[in-house]
């Protein structure tokens, strides 16, 4: 499933993550992550984001993430909201 309608979820506040989903120009899922803890948790955040998108059946999108130290379930929840809003 492709993301065709842009959608957003989350906030820029501490312990949260701001998710923006846009239709992809290339193919597949592209995740662009900015995080205050990118060195410590960058890999993990990407993994959670990608898994959440894949579990929801998304195959193509541009996913912009602004992380302010969100925990895994926050990340998953925010992405899930954004995907549902884009449908």
């Amino acid at each position: 499933m492709k993301i065709t309608k842009p959608a957003q979820a989350g906030t820029m506040e501490s312990n949260d993550i701001y998710v923006q989903l846009l239709p992809a120009e290339g193919e597949g899922i592209e995740i662009r992550l900015k995080s205050v803890v990118i060195k410590q948790f960058g890999k993990q955040i990407r993994k959670v984001a990608l898994e959440t998108l894949q579990n929801m059946g998304i195959t193509e999108c541009l996913c912009l993430l602004d992380d302010k130290g969100a925990l895994d379930y926050t990340i998953a929840a925010r992405i899930e909201s954004a995907v549902k809003r884009s449908l």
Partner: peptide, 21 residues
């Protein structure tokens, strides 16, 4: 105190809703 983040989030949402990515 986190006010910047709150204000910025609101403005970012508005811009995004209007199609400014």
């Amino acid at each position: 105190l986190g006010l910047t983040q709150k204000l910025l989030t609101e403005v970012a949402y508005k811009a995004f809703e209007q199609g400014y990515y």
